[in-house]
Simulated assay, not measured.
Amino acid sequence: MNLKILLPFRVFDQKTGVQRVVAESHAGSFGLLPQRLDCVASLVPGILVYETDADGELFVAVDEGVLVKTGDDVLVSVRQAIGGTDLARLRHSVEQEFLTLNESERNVRSVMAKLESGFIQRFAGFQHDR
């Protein structure tokens, strides 16, 4: 298979001759082999594992994203990625950077929702007073 890991502004990694890919979704971990049917999956922060003849087993910590398999091509599009060989360190990176960022984003979204609802209430009151 051909694996391409995409970040918002660049290609993180691109490999050919990939024998298998293991990723994490909301439903749990799943694997891809070359003969698997085409699919699309929503990824959660976790460890992406892939194996090639030349490099062996490789690990990439990935943030939320999408995986698309079409034929021999596997595209992984994520917001952030960190490569490495030490699984404990990568797992720690996922927990510290990606999950903390998601919590911060949830806080920002909550504040934005409150601002939007306040605006809508004031606007509705303004129209009612007219």
Rank of each mutant, 00 (worst) to 15 (best):
M1T: 05
M1S: 03
L3V: 10
L3C: 11
K4V: 13
L6A: 15
L7N: 09
P8R: 04
P8A: 03
F9E: 13
R10F: 01
Q14V: 07
T16Y: 03
T16S: 12
G17F: 12
A23V: 03
A23I: 13
A23R: 04
A23T: 08
E24D: 09
E24K: 13
A27L: 03
A27N: 09
Q35L: 15
D38S: 15
V40C: 05
S42Y: 10
V44D: 10
P45L: 03
G46L: 01
L48W: 04
L48K: 09
T52A: 02
T52Q: 02
D55T: 12
E57S: 09
V60C: 08
V60R: 10
D63N: 03
E64P: 00
V66Y: 07
V66L: 13
V68P: 00
V68S: 06
K69H: 10
G71A: 05
V78G: 06
R79H: 12
A81K: 02
G84T: 09
G84C: 06
R89E: 14
R91L: 15
S93H: 06
Q96F: 03
F98C: 01
L99W: 05
S110I: 09
S110H: 09
M112W: 08
A113G: 05
A113L: 10
E116Y: 01
G118P: 01
F119K: 15
I120A: 14
I120D: 11
R122L: 12
R122W: 09
G125K: 03
G125M: 12
F126Q: 14
R130F: 11
